[in-house]
């Protein structure tokens, strides 16, 4: 066996963090096709005019479609999504990246913005689920 620098299972040991693996990338391929379609103004308009009908053009799972309608970014990441794709959706909504990202925390937009202004979230206690450090 080849040596690895660390066990790959440790990638799942980061609190509140999902690593975008090849398997997740495949799971979200059609979700991400939808996200990237929003790089076109006509598509954005079509989506805004009838979100559900527009989503039905894509071979996404029903759970993925519902999470898009709900703008539930944590759920979208759970369903394979990656933030670099998902911000195409929040940009289409006119949200700032900070609002989209902050929506995945337990804070209000104002609370999240205040935390960032105060220096961000310290890593203490958030490095490892196992080691609680």
């Amino acid at each position: 066996m080849r040596q690895r620098l660390y066990p790959l299972e440790d990638l799942e040991d980061i609190p509140g963090t999902t690593v975008f693996t090849a398997a997740r990338s495949r799971q979200a391929y059609h979700l991400h096709k939808f996200c990237m379609s929003l790089m076109d103004k006509d598509n954005r308009n079509a989506f805004k005019a009838d979100e559900r009908a527009y989503l039905d053009r894509f071979r996404m799972s029903d759970e993925q479609k519902q999470a898009v309608l709900d703008r539930d970014f944590n759920r979208l990441i759970e369903l394979g999504g990656n933030i670099y794709f998902l911000v195409k959706l929040s940009n289409t909504d006119g949200w700032s990246a900070q609002r989209a990202v902050g929506s995945m925390t337990d804070m209000t937009p104002d609370e999240y913005a205040a935390m960032m202004r105060a220096g961000g979230r310290p890593p203490a206690g958030l490095r490892s689920i196992r080691d609680k450090n």
Partner: peptide, 13 residues
Amino acid sequence: SHQLQGPRAGLIN
């Protein structure tokens, strides 16, 4: 440093 996803979003070190 930055994190753009999940409950740990906003991490800065």
